[in-house]
Design a protein around this nucleic acid. Structure first.
Lengths: 341, 341
DNA sequence: CGCCCTAACCGAAACGTTTCGGTTGATAGT
DNA sequence: ACTATCAACCGAAACGTTTCGGTTAGGGCG
């Protein structure tokens, strides 16, 4: 109904050619100030908004960017990362008239396929690359497609795309130092799914921080970032003859799952064992005990990533961005180890 | 780089006209089986995918649908509803070659503005209308714009758009009956933000269920769906001289916040007070005590909504859909009231 | 006064599809 | 043998912009 008016109607009303209308809007060509005003007035009066359809065909731009998230629905539903990440992206996109195309994929094959189509159909001008995996096939694909891309927390060297990163080292070092200062000497780690590079990053950071304090690394349980992995970790680590007094989890969800199972096993947190998470999930504040964790900034990451991507699309040079490092937040789930030898 | 090939290249390679290529793909016109094969082979060999740019200009279709979510970032970050809802939508969209444009708005004005632009720019073929508010201005707007729209959990009569609904009555009735059966006679309610229609729906259902059992409604605390509203509710309802023995919360987040504060106040759940939520947040399973709640089906709602919207866009008649009602899930946070008079 | 320059504006092509009326050659009917 | 019919295919317009080369009128200059 309302979509009928086009640039032609505006041109007719303002008594100019359509090329002048276009120039008036985009500030491109030479239009006198008086006619520009007349044109804008006519456009406003008619309620004309340039159609993206015509615009993108002509201008080779879509004014949209893509994000493909690859998750098992299970993890997704309780993971707050993406909501905040996306809201950061949107905060940048909206004032610039861009839109976000969000797609979901359940496995790696589906995920690369989505990127391929996004690019082949010209649905977006650029994409975000997040949650990078070991030997991630999307990297080669996006390079081959030539689609402008911004990576999130990619590896610190050799990433072919500009990247925004929030350092995990400091936060995890702070966690370990915090535990050591409390007196812990036997500190375990529950990893994320090991096909993600950030699982390795966090594991390595945990090892390095322990090495720096001269303490032997405790047992490592291989998790997968899910709540249920946390309960499995509890079963594995909280045996009656355990010597572990603290457990560093690679994300909050696993820490929460672990604490739930600990309660079932009669292991008290933090009195019997200290537990830490990673992310800064709101929920952690409302657990009892509340969760000591490392606070990340998904929204800030989204803002930076979006800014970089739009710059890259415009053909401007883009530099890597480092967000202020994720930092330790001490809450109730950590305390001195039990004094019993 | 790879985006250069067009329908013209395919036509040339297959030695036909571009209109035949188009027909071969869309199954529309009359093309012999042999040439159709030849055309498809040529297309495949060249790796041609029809450009959405051209397609949408010509066909007046964008092959995208829009969702605007309006939330304070705070709530969003820990609310799992949207992730599951979106994944349900995507499950339907993807096989049909459609994409989801996701936008975020922080207040009502921004939200209507996003819908307006989405429509004016022709960025999408239709939209979802979710989290409907009392006197929601988006309803009149979308009617005026004429954009195909599917509503989620709209009011049961007088909605101008086809709607998918999951009944809340049964679940809340089950909650109340469950509590009454346990022996509770003084049952409070913590509402959501009262500008949402579903806050009223849940409040009314709570009242009705109590009325049906002949019990007077207990106190009502006006919350806003956030974790911190839950703690405020705890402070208001868990006074030392309280007579309330059970609290029905309008969502899980508030129940979780409430339980956290209850623990701080030394009020034991469920021994001193029973608490229930609404949604079926995964997290509720991993709290101790775990949360008795009403399990909703955001993913199924998303699937139905997407199916309906695509049908509406195709001009097919669309009927309202009712998802299986949300049902009570009993976990640890509910028990018999304390026996002390 | 004639020339060139420039500001201001216009016309038309181009972008990549779909669609629809038109053409062709073969087949069927009488 | 001639025409009506039909399957198969083609040509060109249309969708709504942007862009770029071209035109015009006016002004400055020698």
């Amino acid at each position: 109904m309302s979509g009928r008016i086009t640039i032609v109607d505006v041109a007719r009303k303002a008594e100019v050619s359509i090329s002048s209308v276009s120039s008036a809007l985009n500030g491109g060509g030479e239009v006198s100030e008086s006619t520009r005003k007349r044109i804008l007035a006519a456009a406003k009066e008619l309620g004309w908004v340039p159609s993206l359809r015509g615009r993108s065909l002509s201008g080779k731009r879509t004014f949209a960017v893509g994000l493909v998230v690859q998750r098992q629905p299970e993890v997704l539903s309780s993971d707050p990362f993406f909501a905040a990440f996306i809201s950061g992206i949107e905060a940048v996109l909206e004032p610039r008239g861009q839109a976000l195309v969000l797609q979901m994929a359940t496995d790696a094959a589906a995920s690369t396929e989505r990127y391929r189509r996004l690019s082949a159909e010209h649905r977006v001008d650029g994409v975000f690359l997040d949650e990078i995996r070991v030997n991630d096939p999307r990297i080669a694909l996006l390079q081959e497609l030539g689609t402008p891309t911004v990576a999130v927390n990619s590896e610190e060297s050799g990433s072919p795309f500009p990247s925004v990163r929030q350092s995990y080292r400091q936060g995890i070092t702070e966690v370990v130092e915090h535990l050591v200062r409390l007196g812990h000497r036997r500190i375990a780690h529950v990893t994320g799914a090991m096909d993600f590079i950030h699982s390795h990053q966090r594991l390595d950071a945990w090892r390095a921080a322990l090495a720096a304090t001269g303490i032997e690394p405790g047992p490592v349980f291989e998790g997968d970032f899910t709540l249920s992995a946390g309960t499995a970790a509890a079963d594995a680590l909280l045996t009656p003859d355990r010597d572990v007094t603290a457990i560093v989890c690679a994300n909050d969800l696993m820490a929460i799952g672990l604490m739930a199972r600990a309660a079932d096993l009669g292991v008290r947190v933090p009195r019997d064992v200290s537990v830490t998470g990673y992310d800064g999930n709101d929920m952690g504040t409302y657990l009892r005990p509340s969760l000591t964790t490392v606070m990340t900034s998904p929204s800030a990451i989204g803002r930076s990533a979006a800014t970089m991507l739009l710059d890259a699309i415009d053909g401007n040079p883009v530099e890597d961005v480092a967000i202020d490092p994720a930092r330790l937040v001490v809450r109730q789930s950590t305390a001195a180890p039990p004094t019993t030898a």
